[in-house]
Write a protein that binds this DNA or RNA. Sequence first.
DNA 1: GTCTATACTGAGATAGAC
DNA 2: GTCTATCTCAGTATAGAC
Lengths: 200, 200
Amino acid sequence: MALGDKDVRVRLQQSALNLFAERGYERTTAAEIAARAGVTERTFFRHFPDKREVLFDGAAVLLSALTGFIETAPDGLAPLDVLFFAFNAVVPLLEANRHISHPRQEIIAATPALAERELTKHAAMAHALAKLLQLRGVSHLPAELAGHTGMAAFAQATTAWLDDPAIALSERLDLAYVGLKALWSAPTRAADAQTSPEAG
Amino acid sequence: MALGDKDVRVRLQQSALNLFAERGYERTTAAEIAARAGVTERTFFRHFPDKREVLFDGAAVLLSALTGFIETAPDGLAPLDVLFFAFNAVVPLLEANRHISHPRQEIIAATPALAERELTKHAAMAHALAKLLQLRGVSHLPAELAGHTGMAAFAQATTAWLDDPAIALSERLDLAYVGLKALWSAPTRAADAQTSPEAG
DNA sequence: GTCTATACTGAGATAGAC
DNA sequence: GTCTATCTCAGTATAGAC
């Protein structure tokens, strides 16, 4: 009607982000989000199947970008190297969206219901990455392992970078990559040995 | 009070498992679960903070067992080898509970809300494993990577074994272990190359 | 144990685009 | 006319407050 031609969906997302930042997720009702966007509560639920989803639209864009890079990754790379090739390739996209991702991440971290939904999104993305690896000849179970392992590293790198931008995202990814490989070789000491590590 | 001395909590869990199997999770109300267990709806929510939690009590027992084995794992093992040492050690426990885990897994797989909660439980367990590795001297970020990578492999092995017990759980764990290591070395072909793999 | 807010669903009506 | 987006109204179940 007269609230400007900007898409209702986008208005709902912005209203939600603002209200969640102001009062917190639980103290914000779907009706309030809808009202600020100039529509009714029912319209909110037609755009988003539940209240949480309003914060998770960006995942599709990211996945689409990752898909393109995985499909064009060089031949002969190992499964996890394919994934990290794509992760590094989407760094500019993530950097460009940091001003939205950062406050969003804080809201999610403060809200168990949203943290739970984010895990679901990560699992879905891990599964999508696995299917792309299968297109490159990786068999089912190893592909799923690669998807989940890669996503764990990707999520750790991006989360750490959102928390503390002093270390660049590409460097965070490198750290995660090196850290993953070391999980097979770096020895750990038994818990008992910890009591006198320098003494023995 | 005459419904037998079996703990109300356990009766609620059994009622829930049965009702979910009969009608599905969404078509079962908390009041119905409570009624079958001989208590009121209010009592249900006193035992479980939300309806989903009634299916996720076993995680604590499993984690407790894993904790013991990680603490007593041999000195000098790499992070992921510590975790797989513990995973293999709890195989008998899992095998003993298969008659409960199997129907439970089917209900969870059929119910998105429950699958989401299970991811949360897995993430919590990954985090717990990470903290145990930190007690063995592994630093924070690598420990978290190991926790999530290990949990992904553990979950894949147990899920596959619940679906198809023809392959033993210990063998499923071995397959996951080997599969993980190969993610760094086994080459993949580019998607384009797939169209004529034998022709070139 | 009682009461209530609110997330979510379904059916039907309206309005505009094409 | 169809199709799509929205609103209105009525309802149920969860979960938290009292």
